[in-house]
Simulated scan of single mutants.
Amino acid sequence: MRVYLPVTLDELQHGSPVLLTPRVAHAVTPQLRATWPDEDEEGWEYAAQAGAADDSLVRVAGSPDAPPLRVVVAADVPDAAVRALTDPPVPSAVELTAAVDLAAVVSVHVDEPEAAADVRAVVDGDEAAIERLEERDLLWYDVSEVADIPSV
């Protein structure tokens, strides 16, 4: 199953070979499909990635030393490593029950460095900055490029 994991850039670039500990992640769930029945697979995946990007903001807010960029890791994990949440905060939220290592990572999606001011503003409670970030697409990186992702 493809999952989208919210992370911080420092967590990703300075982690151990097991990159991500168990956490709430996002995926194309039956609830997400039911919420937007007219979407296609690509639209549902975009919605799941957007949910992870929102959760990445929460992780940045909780890590003052982390670069102020949204970061989402796309990974393919066994279905058994994902559990449905009883009362998910958004339709794409799931519980990842196993750690994810580098071999499972498919791609990484990161804000461009110019988005840092808006990320900081969101962390400080600026509602207008949320709207500006929603208009930005995350940049795509191959897993081999993780160490080269620019920070601010």
Results as ranks from 00 to 15, higher is better:
32 L>D: 01
108 V>T: 02
90 V>L: 13
87 D>V: 13
39 E>S: 12
73 V>A: 10
60 V>I: 10
40 D>L: 07
108 V>L: 06
47 A>C: 09
67 P>Y: 12
79 D>M: 00
151 S>F: 08
57 L>D: 03
24 V>K: 09
78 P>C: 06
46 Y>L: 14
139 L>W: 08
86 T>N: 09
70 R>S: 03
79 D>S: 12
30 P>M: 14
1 M>H: 11
88 P>G: 07
40 D>I: 07
129 A>R: 07
140 W>Q: 05
144 S>Q: 06
125 G>S: 09
34 A>F: 09
51 G>E: 00
118 D>W: 08
69 L>N: 01
111 D>I: 01
113 P>T: 15
53 A>V: 02
107 S>I: 00
128 A>L: 13
30 P>I: 14
134 E>M: 12
95 E>C: 09
77 V>K: 03
116 A>P: 00
72 V>N: 02
58 V>N: 07
120 R>E: 10
49 Q>R: 14
86 T>G: 12
62 G>I: 01
138 L>V: 09
4 Y>H: 11
150 P>D: 12
129 A>T: 08
147 A>Q: 14
90 V>C: 12
19 L>T: 10
35 T>R: 15
66 A>S: 15
78 P>N: 13
23 R>P: 01
75 A>P: 01
29 T>E: 04
22 P>W: 07
122 V>I: 09
113 P>Q: 13
107 S>E: 11
121 A>H: 06
120 R>H: 10
124 D>N: 12
97 T>F: 08
16 S>Q: 15
134 E>F: 11
8 T>V: 13
90 V>S: 14
31 Q>G: 11
81 A>I: 02
21 T>K: 14
31 Q>Y: 10
133 L>G: 02
145 E>T: 03
62 G>K: 12
20 L>N: 02
152 V>D: 08
87 D>E: 15
52 A>S: 12
76 D>W: 04
81 A>P: 04
120 R>W: 11
50 A>Y: 04
32 L>N: 04
92 S>K: 01
